[in-house]
Amino acid sequence: MPHLSTYVGLADHSEKTLAESLRAVADGHAAEVDVFHTCHLLAGWSDEHRHLLAPVVARYGEDDVEEPERLHADGLAEVRSGPVGLLRDLQDLHVLATLVQTTWTVVAQGAQGLRDHELLQVATTSNAETTRQLTWLNTRMKAAAPQALIVDP
């Protein structure tokens, strides 16, 4: 199952990227206090997913073969400024979280095929929380968009 271990690695890696990026956006837009607090909260969820996955990673080995390199998305090392910048950053987070979600979806399928209950459990619970991360990102973008697009100087 070389490919499943690849995807387990991808899940781990993409959650790490998402957590780091959430924290970067939180701190970069700290003046938007709800963004600050919520992004930190959501980053904690991604940490927890990695924590739950750790024993599985130990079992399968984290196979960083070449191909998934192309799947890795770069995180947000730097944030943009201003209302439009916030909107763009939230959009980027949404892309990262979507990668996380699709990764969990396929990992869950693999886990089912292999009857790996532990992995299935991790993938399912993590996926459910990724959905909540995506929902919040959507909600916050919707709130920010009109002002950013129409009024921002």
Binding site: D34, T38, L41, R132, Q133, T135, W136, N138, T139
Partner: peptide, 9 residues
Amino acid sequence: HDLLTGGAV
């Protein structure tokens, strides 16, 4: 809403 994040259903 999600009670922890405020994400809208």
